[in-house]
Every structure is written in C-alpha cells, then in structure tokens.
Nucleic acid binder design. Structure first.
Lengths: 345, 345
DNA sequence: CTGAAAGCGCTAACAT
DNA sequence: ATGTTAGCGCTTTCAG
C-alpha cells in the first residue's frame, strides 16, 4: 500500500537514537538497557509501528514462509489438510503462501516460479492430475529447495513425500466386502495415470486375488474422480443389466454419483446395490444410508508434511529423502456393513 | 532458503554489463536494445535466475499481494469463496496471503498485524463469531488501509463490505414455505450476536408477519451453526412432542443435524417433517431427500470483494465506502417443494 | 542505449 | 550500552 508507514528510522529520529538501537530494542536484544527498551517500545507502539517483513526477510535472506501448491481447495480432502497446515504453521510462527493450480500443469509451474521468487523456505506440493512433465520438480531438487510432496506424487527418485497408504486402504475395503460375503465386486477406478488411481486399483486387485474372488473386468470402469463419473459408470452397467452387488469407488464423490443414479433407477442402497468408497468426508454420515469409507487421516498427512518440511529446512545438507505412508482405517456406517447371506448363490 | 540464488548482479558480471541493464532488459524496458535483451534473457534463463520479489517489493513499496482472513477453510462456503478469490487474483497477477483465524479473535488480530507487516496492498476479512472488539478494524480504516469485509461484518460506519442478502434470502425461503401451505414453521437460528444470525431470523419473522402466519416462540431455537446443534434442537422439540411441520435452518449443517435426528426417531423428511436451509453446498443434491436451500452465490461474493479491493487499492484517496448486497436465490429440490394439502386443518 | 548513484527498511558485524 | 558501516537485491532517477 502507498500509505506512509512508520519505519525504524522515524522512531529513531523522534528519540534521537540510531536505527540500530531501535531495531535491537524492539527485538529484545541484550545490548540494550531495560530502560531504553521500555521507552522505545512504548513510543513505537504509540506511533503504530509495524515492522516491514519484506525488508527483514531480504536482509535475513529467508522468509519464514512455506509455499503450498494444491490442485483445488473447495474439496473436503484438501480443505482439511490445508486447514491443518495453517494451524501448524501458525503455532510455529511460519506463514503459509497457498496457491491453487486448478488441476492445470502450467499454472502449477507458474506457482512454483512465483513461490521461488518469494523466497519461501520450503514447498509442499500436491501435483495436478495432468502433470506429466516432471522436469520442474527435478530442477527444484537439484537446486536443493526443500520440497515435500503430498498425496499426489511425481514418479521421481529420492523425493520427500507423504502419501496415504492407498493400496492398503483399498485392500481393507475390498477385503471387508469379501468377508461379509460379497463376490460380485466392482470398482469405479478414476484415472489410472494418477498414483492414487493406480494404487487403489492395485489394492482392489490384490484383495480379490488373495481371497480368490474372480475379477470381472466389465465391473472395473475407469474415468474420473467426480460424482458425474460415478453416475455415468453406474448407468452404463445398469443399462447393460450387468451390475455387481457392490461397488468400491475410488473417491467419495464417485460414490455420491452412484447414490444419485441408484435412486433414479429405483435401486436401494445397500440392499439392491451396495457401495463403499475411498476417502472420508464429513457429510457421509448424513447420507441415506450413511456411507462407509476408507478414511484418510488428513490431520496426520498435514502433520507429517510439516514435520518433513521443517526437518528439511533446518538441515539443508540432508539429502536422503523420506517417504511416509499414512495408514488408513475403515469407517463402517450404513453401507457395506452386514453379512450378505441373501446373495448366496 | 539458504541456497545460493542467482541475482541480477551475477548475470551482469557474467555479461560484463551493469545490473541496471540486466534489470531493465528482463523487464522489457524500452531503454535496452533488442539484441542485448535477447542475450540477457537467454543467459538468465540458463543460469536459472528467479527475481527476488522481496527485494522488488521493498524497492517498489508495495507487494502485489492481498491479505485474506477467514475464520476457517474446511467449510463449503469459505472454501468456495477462497477458491474463487485465488483464481481472480491469479488472473490479475496478484498473490493472496491467506490466513485462518480459527474463529478466534486474538488470532485474527495477530493475522492483521502480520499481514500489515507483509505490506499487503489490501485486506479482505470475514470476522470471527466471537470478535467483539472492533478497534483493530477501526485503526485499519484510519490508517487508510484498503479493507473489504465479507459475509461477517463488524458494525462499523463507512466500511467496504460484501454481504449476502441474508434477510431477503431467509424471507424467500419462509415465504415459499408459506405459499405451499405451511403454517407451523420453526426456525433453528444459530447465534443472534452474529450478523448473519440476526439477519436471517429477521427475514424469517418478516415473512411470517407479512403473510399473517403466527410465530410460535417455542419453535425458534438459538444455539449454533453446526450439525450438532441442529440435532439437539430437533431432539428437544421432539421430546417435547412439539415439532412444527417445517424447519427453516440458519445454515446447511444445522439441516444435516435435523436429517440425522429425524432418521433416528423414524420421521420421514419431507412428509413427517420438512426442512429448508440457508446456504448451498454441493452435497445437498445427494442427500435423501435432496435438500432445498437458499443459495449464496459464493463466486459473486468473491468477485465483488476483489472488485472493491482493487478499486480501493487503485484509488487510495477514495473514502466513501461501498456496501454490496448479493442477491440470493432459492434452490428447490426434494424438500419444501410440494403443496401440503395434507396438513390443512 | 547504458550505467553510476542512491535508496527501499532492516540487520549483522564491527567499532566506540 | 549505543552507533557506524555495509549490504540484502532490486529499481528509479539522472547523467553520460
């Protein structure tokens, strides 16, 4: 802003001391006597002094800020992680510079540039679904910029990352479905070029194989992570009269799409068709029936990510990367939650 | 970060020119010949130069950044607004420094200090539910800092604000309920010390009065904005065997609480008890039945807020404040959406 | 077209 | 205990 801002110099002149004295006094430097400190603080308060962080950071060559890049905000998963990241940063006197890539690789790239220009101390990134050029990230690494990737992770060696155990979580869900008696299990799988899509379908397949349940490729549908896709995928199978007994969806919105479609065609969940999804959201318990899911502990993801980034910031020399897998747990509510003897064939 | 960053000077030395030349070349200043520009750009690219925005901003005495303070993020309403704000900022080459007050007045105050220290060009604020000391905001105004308040607005004269027409929206919802035949209309009202609570109940009452429908004070319950409160309020009336025919809830989570409670006691929405709420959320259409609501156009709020803040930033002299009321519209889905002849008594 | 000088506000290092 | 000097990286005069 263009307003006249009070500077150290202004205070110094008023008190007939040097800027350095004021600077030190305000930062409680032991050099300065208690009396002068008190006076200086009082006056600067009165004058409405507010330190210029730009100048301070320029001088200190660090910003006390962490840059964050996420594909979107208005989404339970990212919203919750971001909120937690903010809280942790606040407790540690760090600022967060949040940017949104809108799932676009070019925007992501621009944000990286901007954040580097802002001289953030580190970067936390969740890459877009369409990112396929990883050179930007590589150059980040060779430059030695502290970076931690969360959830959506580029296929690069030796990077710090915090990831949900997608495979294990998917496995848990499918295993549970099998254990309560399901045999005809479908999977709406999202995009398989994204690591979460890849991992979740892997967990699905592994559970099926481990328990000797046949995988019907007709019931595995790729396509997207949004509710629209769940709706369409359901309708496709419905029209083919080829629905499984239960569908494991790659995300929670996809399950919403299934709910909507099922209601439209008059099928009752969980009796006519059952659902379980990957991903927690606060509204699931209010659905009818309440939707069971694989919970991804957003708080833990945020905590670990911040822990790693701080570690990296404080040990710039350290080069071995850490890969953290966050364990998931099944939250069983109104779906996929009772033995299905009626299906025994 | 502590890494060696390339500076203008580094490039200048390498090319045996002055920093100024490099600076100008990189910014496409007409002073510099096409040839040198080309060369300098090529080299700085090669060297991986990234301008130090801190230094640039310090020199320019402005930051090209807007500070935003919201009570929370993981919430549909704020999430959607923030997302839009980010997009608009991006299009205008502005940075957003987002901070979260966690509904705590002291944190809010700290954030204001920090953002001022960062020399943001302007501030967009949605105050906490517990803020009751408005002097911070007042001093902001006297300092001449461009500020726009959104949604949650302090009772101060002459401030820029963007507000949803809460009263009008509530009026619309209640009016609609009346028109389709409801007489026994309740209102779960949230906190009345917050402007949105105050306005919404005012709209409720006004509609009731305008249409000559009797207000039963037993059916107006204050208490909070979360689902828990909706649940409790419903249960209270249920236990007293004193439920109205329809409940207008102050927020969408409160309606969720009602859904949950109603299901628990075996009452069917909308037949046994009907609901309509203030506030849009993407999941409403997936509820059973899909929940009708008063939509608050988050995009418009964000757009207007950004418009006002830019206006203010570009005209620091301007002192007359603008107050924008964003119109709402009713989104009718599965609730509060059919004539209730069966209730005629 | 190019560059030298000065300053943005602050702090670390080195006197006094 | 206080002040002087110099520099963080960039940009805006203004002179050449």
């Amino acid at each position: 802003m263009k307003l006249k801002q009070i500077t150290l110099n202004d205070i110094a002149k008023k008190l007939n001391v040097s800027t350095v004295t004021v600077s030190k006094a305000l930062r409680n430097h032991p050099d300065i006597s208690f009396e002068t400190k008190k006076l200086i603080k009082k006056i600067s308060e009165e004058m409405g002094y507010s330190p210029n962080i730009l100048a301070r950071n320029l001088s200190a060559r660090k910003s006390n800020a962490i840059g964050v890049i996420v594909p979107k905000i208005a989404h339970y998963f990212f919203g919750a992680i971001i909120e937690k990241i903010y809280n942790i940063a606040f407790e540690n006197n760090y600022e967060i510079i949040l940017t949104v890539s809108q799932e676009k690789a070019e925007i992501e790239k621009k944000h990286i540039q901007t954040l580097l220009s802002m001289r953030v101390d580190g970067l936390i990134i969740s890459i877009t679904q369409q990112t396929n050029d990883y050179s930007v990230f590589e150059s980040l690494l060779t430059k030695g910029v502290p970076v931690v990737f969360i959830d959506r992770i580029p296929p690069l060696p030796n990077i710090n990352s915090v990831e949900v155990d997608d495979r294990g979580g998917a496995y848990k869900a499918v295993e549970h479905a099998i254990k309560i008696g399901y045999k005809k299990i479908g999977h709406f799988a999202g995009y398989l070029n994204v690591n979460i899509g890849k991992e979740r379908i892997a967990g699905f397949k592994q559970a099926m194989n481990d328990y000797g349940v046949e995988i019907n490729p007709d019931w595995i549908i790729e396509g997207g992570f949004g509710d629209q896709y769940g709706y369409e995928a359901f309708m496709k199978l419905y029209n083919e009269k080829n629905l499984p007994d239960i569908i494991f969806t790659v995300t929670y919105p996809v399950a919403l799409g299934v709910y909507k479609a099922a209601r439209e065609v008059g099928m009752k969940i969980p009796d006519d068709i059952d659902v379980i999804c990957f991903g927690y959201a606060d509204v699931q318990e209010f659905l009818h029936p309440p939707l069971s899911c694989v919970d991804q502990p957003t708080d833990k993801i945020a905590e670990k990510a911040m822990e790693l980034i701080f570690e990296r910031i404080n040990n710039p020399e350290e080069t071995t990367a850490k890969h953290v897998l966050i364990d998931t747990n099944l939250i069983l509510r109104g779906t996929c939650n009772r033995t299905v003897s009626h299906l025994a064939k």
